[in-house]
């Protein structure tokens, strides 16, 4: 099944989504920030860089109340919102990131709290000519319920699940040849960023990157923790307890492995006690450890850590530097 939607059809699809879901769509705010916002709050921004905030936030929020412990010690869990979320406008990298942390949270012991939000959620990909200024974004080829391939003023609708299929019901049919043309464009363009990452990962895994290099990169870290907070595949959290009247509210809060306290022992000793070691860990985890654990990189090239880093040491920048210096 393949459909072809014009702008009116797209609005119709969004209206249908908004009836069953808390629909979030990419919108450009007054200061230029592109964020996922409740649909209808502002104008849709159908083209542009990836939404600034990581999309995995919908299932794993920055500050997430888990449970309340009452005066008598009774525990009540905090329930997720009534209506499931529909995330509209995800590119291939973002969809891959969601798939990555789905596997992490579903892996036994499964994280019920995450799954409660995730299980009925709907994902809508938006690829094709939907990048900044209408730049090309490679098709996701799955990882979502339905994918819209932007062709300018029209979109090809490809369902990937029965729910996606139902939502596309009734729209005019599309031409398979147009999808193939987009696939061909993706093939021709290749993925130079992925190539670079693979080469850098090879160097990191084979331990040819010396400690001095990590010291140098660590010296440039101002410890904002933004790389971790922006990364859709970072899943580390800490637990915060707060007294609210007589009850204690326990929440999980995004953490950062760049903090000294992340690994510091009660004795004060820290096996990752220097910026150099922590920087190495940040890169090594994504490019080497995750490969061992999951069989793929923990970096899906969404670009957020490079965008958020005030000193230019996001993962792609570091990978490029590794390659330039040790790749010969």
């Amino acid at each position: 099944m393949l459909k072809r939607l014009d702008r009116a059809d797209l609005e119709k699809l969004l209206a249908a989504l908004a009836t069953g879901y808390r629909l979030l769509t990419p919108q450009r705010l007054a200061d230029g920030t592109r964020l996922h916002r409740p649909h209808g709050e502002g104008a849709l921004a159908l083209q542009g860089e990836p939404v600034q905030r990581k999309p995995t936030e919908a299932f794993f929020p920055q500050h997430d109340p888990l449970l309340r412990i009452g005066e008598q010690g009774e525990v009540t869990t905090c329930d997720p919102p009534d209506r499931p979320v529909a995330l509209f406008g995800l590119n291939a990298a973002d969809l891959a990131c969601i798939a990555f942390i789905d596997r992490f949270f579903a892996d036994p012991p499964a994280d019920d709290h995450y799954l409660a939000r995730r299980k009925d959620a709907l994902l809508v990909g938006l690829t094709g000519f939907a990048g900044p200024g209408g730049d090309f974004l490679p098709p996701a080829n799955g990882m979502c319920d339905l994918e819209l391939l932007a062709l300018g003023q029209n979109w090809l609708g490809v369902p990937w699940t029965p729910r996606g299929e139902a939502l596309l019901e009734g729209f005019p049919d599309g031409e398979q040849a147009e999808v193939e043309e987009l696939q061909e464009t993706a093939r021709t363009r290749g993925n130079p960023a992925q190539d670079l990452l693979e080469k850098a990962a090879g160097l990191v895994a084979s331990e040819v990157v010396p400690d001095d290099f990590w010291r140098e990169i660590g010296d440039r870290c101002i410890l904002c923790s933004g790389c971790n907070l922006a990364c859709p595949t970072c899943t580390c959290f800490c637990v915060e307890d707060r007294q609210e009247q007589a009850a204690t509210l326990r929440s999980r809060v995004w953490d950062s492995c760049q903090f000294d306290a992340f690994m510091r022992e009660a004795s004060g000793h820290n096996p990752l006690g220097t910026e150099a070691l922590r920087t190495r860990r940040r890169i090594h985890h994504k490019l080497a450890a995750d490969v061992t654990r999951w069989g793929e990189f923990g970096c899906l090239l969404c670009g957020r850590c490079d965008r958020v880093c005030p000193t230019g040491i996001g993962i792609q920048a570091v990978a490029a530097e590794i390659l330039a210096r040790f790749g010969a």
Partner: peptide
Amino acid sequence: GRLVGVEPSAGH
């Protein structure tokens, strides 16, 4: 009514 996080302004 619960603050859950912060996001920097892109255009500032």
